[in-house]
Measured scan of single mutants.
Amino acid sequence: MIVFVRFNSSHGFPVEVDSDTSIFQLKEVVAKRQGVPADQLRVIFAGKELRNDWTVQNCDLDQQSIVHIVQRPWRKGQEMNATGGDDPRNAAGGCEREPQSLTRVDLSSSVLPGDSVGLAVILHTDSRKDSPPAGSPAGRSIYNSFYVYCKGPCQRVQPGKLRVQCSTCRQATLTLTQGPSCWDDVLIPNRMSGECQSPHCPGTSAEFFFKCGAHPTSDKETSVALHLIATNSRNITCITCTDVRSPVLVFQCNSRHVICLDCFHLYCVTRLNDRQFVHDPQLGYSLPCVAGCPNSLIKELHHFRILGEEQYNRYQQYGAEECVLQMGGVLCPRPGCGAGLLPEPDQRKVTCEGGNGLGCGFAFCRECKEAYHEGECSAVFEASGTTTQAYRVDERAAEQARWEAASKETIKKTTKPCPRCHVPVEKNGGCMHMKCPQPQCRLEWCWNCGCEWNRVCMGDHWFDV
């Protein structure tokens, strides 16, 4: 396979590697080409510095992935760790964990309700045991953590790749202090920090972006993250068709209702045909949960890209028209025109101005929308079919299609509260000796007794199943 190397943020060049090629071997190839010592090179990928003893497969490097290699003399205490030698983080029983690669970060837990604080980093599902597709590297999971809308060759929703760059020099040479644990960490600028490894760059702020994971991409090709779309790892039924499908869209209502993408497309087109989208002054033209839940309008309007190009163009047109109407304007009634106009409040005669090729020149009556006339309008008909009709959803289907309910059931079956801080902690095999993952707590306690870890627990039921 081919990976592209950008040395000291210059133009990239291809390097041929195998899945079992080590990072140090990659350094040696680059060092020979650039005429520099291999031990002064640092390989940066997806916000993480890659260790010498890791392989291309370990690092989730795919065909035509772009890695950054910078030349920086080692500072005291760094060289041993980078070589894969006596790194205290690798000691058996050590409590410190390697910062998780962005290629394996899962933010789907952050669609849980606000009262489930902490689960994004504490609760991990076991539903990723799908067998890898044919042709994928051994052991590589097909679980997708992110979804994007690819405006490039795909023109559809695709699995996405999370990447990070330095907000100062805009190069992907920043190593994160810690990985993101929720969508806010990724979507809110300057929320996460790190250290830029580019020479002479003092940058410390992280800037995240997404790429389409279905095809090789260049540095400049980015895609918009659709953070309401998630892999259906909890096997929730769709609120409309009641099938279990994946991926799904999880509405931001209190129940976190789930809808499959085909039904979401149908829901949007139906509402669009009836012009029953909601115009929100802050958000724009949007839709609420299909069950009509309060405070559930979709905030990231790129989710409506699921409509496809033709329907999305209609959505944008109707949204612009609705904006004009909300501002007190009118639409030209001549067939084939429909231009938005903003006449004076007491102006009865409205002319669709033909300047700049935008208007048709038609003069019409503001009251009856017919060709302009003197005197009273002959008839004014009330528009028919403008009443909002509820999208029919079966109550039982709505009850079963809740992301929140599956989460709470998982928590109930696989977790116990920490005796000190009461945060839910998952036990997935292993011994009875637990350690609270909350940095402010870190209590060592017994899963069996529910009390602080002691010699009695150690001698009596340390390794009970």
Rank of each mutant, 00 (worst) to 15 (best):
V330F: 06
A91I: 12
T222E: 10
P99W: 10
E376R: 11
R314S: 03
R170K: 15
R392D: 07
Y143V: 09
Y312V: 04
A31K: 00
E300P: 14
N254M: 10
G213T: 09
K349D: 05
P345L: 09
P113D: 14
F304Q: 01
V36L: 08
A134T: 10
M434K: 07
V117W: 06
P133H: 11
E376Q: 14
W447L: 03
C268W: 02
G203P: 02
C169R: 01
G114D: 14
G114Q: 13
D274Y: 03
G47R: 01
D87K: 11
Y149A: 03
D106Q: 09
E426W: 06
C166P: 00
T415D: 10
H11K: 04
M434A: 08
G160Y: 02
R245D: 04
M192S: 04
P159N: 06
K220M: 12
S127L: 12
G12C: 06
I69Y: 00
Q326R: 13
D219N: 10
G93S: 13
P294T: 12
P202C: 08
L26P: 01
D115T: 10
P189A: 09
R420G: 14
C368I: 02
D280K: 09
E395C: 09
H200D: 14
G357Q: 15
M432I: 04
D126H: 08
K408P: 10
V17H: 00
R392H: 11
V465R: 04
T175K: 15
G361E: 05
E79N: 10
L307W: 02
V290D: 01
R51N: 11
C166I: 01
V423K: 15
C196R: 01
C323Q: 15
F210G: 02
S131I: 11
S108G: 11
D460T: 15
A291Y: 10
L443A: 09
V43N: 01
G375M: 06
E79S: 12
Y267W: 05
G429I: 14
A31G: 10
Q440D: 15
C212V: 02
T242N: 15
V465C: 15
C418F: 01
R442H: 15
L249I: 12
C360T: 03
R89T: 14
C182K: 08
Y147M: 03
Q64P: 06
T414K: 10
F209H: 11
A82I: 12
C150P: 00
D126A: 09
D53A: 05
A405C: 12
F208T: 03
